[in-house]
Design a binder for these strands. Sequence first.
DNA 1: CGTGTTATGGTACGGACGTACCAGGATAGC
DNA 2: GCTATCCTGGTACGTCCGTACCATAACACG
Lengths: 190, 190
Amino acid sequence: MPRQVDHDERRRHIAAAVWRIAAVGGLEDATIRRVAAEAGVPARQLQYYFGSRDDLLLGALDLLNKEGEAEAQERVAALGPAPTPRQILRSVLLEFLPLDESRRRRQLVHAAYFVRFLGDDTLRERIRDTPPELEGLIALLLPEDRRDEADFLLAGAAGLQGQVLLGQMTAERAVDLIDRQLDRVFAASA
Amino acid sequence: MPRQVDHDERRRHIAAAVWRIAAVGGLEDATIRRVAAEAGVPARQLQYYFGSRDDLLLGALDLLNKEGEAEAQERVAALGPAPTPRQILRSVLLEFLPLDESRRRRQLVHAAYFVRFLGDDTLRERIRDTPPELEGLIALLLPEDRRDEADFLLAGAAGLQGQVLLGQMTAERAVDLIDRQLDRVFAASA
DNA sequence: CGTGTTATGGTACGGACGTACCAGGATAGC
DNA sequence: GCTATCCTGGTACGTCCGTACCATAACACG
């Protein structure tokens, strides 16, 4: 066999270029030639490692989601050995806010994919899995009769994301609003 | 002078074609040729009535927003002669949910513009105006010390929109969640 | 030291895009 | 009915797109 390169590393390098471009100009700007230029590799290499352009965009999304899940779990683990339900829930909710460059970029890219998700039925199932998973997690953190509160907290965090990204609200205020809601929910359940 | 046509009517007809296309495939699919085919007019006419493609997309957005504001005010007026603050606030929040085809399409189109808004600074100011306006309205409906609740209600409604559009939640449950929050907020303030 | 597989680079092709351009209809006012 | 003006339709140009194609370089293995 001839020389072997680290396929995964190449794919991540190219995917990162997709993210940088899509975060600024949307999927529209993530053309093969432009991504190649951003990544500093010949356009032919994108064909080789991803196939068609659709495969490239989907593959880049999968890698982005994997990276996001890993980061989220790291932050939960950083809470300490025995985090309280409130700490875990807070960590999950803050994952929706662009509190650092990594989260911000990920959320921008997700926004870029959003409309495409809405139009494509098979594609929609790719993110339909995530929130039910979150609901299951939160069901473990809150008593069952607070399901409505949990769902609305998730929706609120998602809504705050949009306002922060648009610059209509500071991240600090968004965090503060979430903390006040957590005060209320956990005070009443105590 | 030669024959006169109703410019506004033409522009609305063409803009409606932009909305139908952008709601399905995003701004990416809203090309001059495709919009022209959807509207059933020669492509040249889009140039004449809107100018460049960017002008077309922006003009279509303005018309969409005007239509949305008119509909929202109609629904508030339909509440009756002396609506309660809770009725008005509920009406505003429900405006964020895709409860009919008109709202659904408008929200899909807004989602399509979202990423472009994020990237373009001058463009971002075009929607930066709307939420402060809403906050001002809500400030009139709720006592000042409930500002946090009002902001989180707005964010929650916006977040529910995304989940309903993605099919992760029914519109009925979203309305129910909002009503329960309204129960809480207005019960405590009574 | 071949040799066959893996990886690379460049290029060529057909199509869609935005928009500038031009020639010609249609009509309200003189 | 003439004509200036509004409007229409078609087309042509240059650019960028996705992707198929081909020749060649690099290297593990026999």
